[in-house]
Design a protein around this nucleic acid. Sequence first.
DNA 1: GTAGTTATCGACCTGTAGTCGAAAACTACC
DNA 2: GGTAGTTTTCGACTACAGGTCGATAACTAC
Lengths: 238, 238
Amino acid sequence: MTEQGATTFQHEVLAAVFTIGRDLHGFASLKVLLWQRAQWPDAGRWALPGGAVRLDETVDDSMSRQLAEKVDLAGVSHLEQLGVFSAPDRVPAGPGRPARVIATGFLGLVPSGVTPSLPEDTDWETVDRLSPIALDHGRIIDRAHDRLRAKVSYTNLAFGLAPAEFTLAELAGIYRAVLGHDIDPSNLQRVLGRRGMIETVGRTAPPGASGGRPAALYRFTTADLTVTDPFAAFRPPS
Amino acid sequence: MTEQGATTFQHEVLAAVFTIGRDLHGFASLKVLLWQRAQWPDAGRWALPGGAVRLDETVDDSMSRQLAEKVDLAGVSHLEQLGVFSAPDRVPAGPGRPARVIATGFLGLVPSGVTPSLPEDTDWETVDRLSPIALDHGRIIDRAHDRLRAKVSYTNLAFGLAPAEFTLAELAGIYRAVLGHDIDPSNLQRVLGRRGMIETVGRTAPPGASGGRPAALYRFTTADLTVTDPFAAFRPPS
DNA sequence: GTAGTTATCGACCTGTAGTCGAAAACTACC
DNA sequence: GGTAGTTTTCGACTACAGGTCGATAACTAC
């Protein structure tokens, strides 16, 4: 247990921030916030927002601070750590660059409809069809997408992607965009309703152009993103 | 996006390694690997094994390397990242110590029965009754325990705590030690059996001193810890 | 052989979720 | 106003996973 000399690392934070946008056909589609690198390495490629951690802040505080430079922070409804990415060669050494940078990856969510103004180099890109991603940021996006898929099905994390009020069809579209397969709105209502996650507002959405019965508006019951996981197996005896 | 001067941090890894031991009454009990600090700060308190990350290794490699100094690494059946602990004051600055140390916390598992020889200052301590823990290591233990409890109920992670062959009563004891409440061995068999997680060996354990039918021996089917999560809701349509 | 002990299996019940079709509530057109 | 078309909503039905409990099996000790 001899005290080492000061082997130190630069530490950066990187967030894969998702939101729900529209694809060419108007269907809900999962998007991720990216900016286009201007400098070496990987100039021209899409990269995740983030940056170096300062001396007086936690990695979580740092992530919030750096995201605020890209999007309105009030629009970010959820932010959680994903893991540490620390391959020695994940960022190539170069002039004015430290030899090693350790990164803490985050998963972020922005509700559908909250499309804040973005800087010039920044945009929402469709997750399904991403051009090559800078450095190891593609790995972080994949891990974030995996985490999102998993949690959406057993927590109320979809709250982070849904607008304040929504119809069941809209919510089913969000689930479809995240999970990659169709969701029956009828089943969604019963499942989330019984879990106590959603409740009706009492009003209906304006009817669509193609007619049809106007849809009731719903909201999520919990304002905060307290994760309520209803694992079935091995509960305490009653 | 101006390139900062080199703000760097020491980075350490810390593992909460659990195993199954026996309590005073012979019941299965969850233990965590700790060593007693000799120096400031928090001299005399129990602390998690770990240490500084070197320049040429990932945090995961570093964790494995540092654990090998405490226990036989072959005995560690599972090791996964928990999260980053980065409060600016989590490690007090002092003579010969950097002002800030960022830590990556890990959850580790050692199977019951594999009790390798330990260094003088190191021992397995009962998780339920821990004396005050050094620095923020108590937080890491709590987070690791939470993660373990959650994953044990919807994955095959108990494999990491169980011996190669076991009876259902033994396995139920492991689950009870982890979850903190009784588990019906009968139900455990049906649930894990249907999930394809366990299978019978074909032999029986030697009967106990107090008589009774000899118990069949089981093993986990998957040698590796591939996590198979059978979340029920929102599956793809068939 | 009989009592005591432990393990195993099956029956039964409950709760959750997928599927599907009927009814409700609207628009558009004649 | 009536009819066809569209979309939502609700309920019935089914399948399946898991908790509970009692009966039976397989042993030891006397």
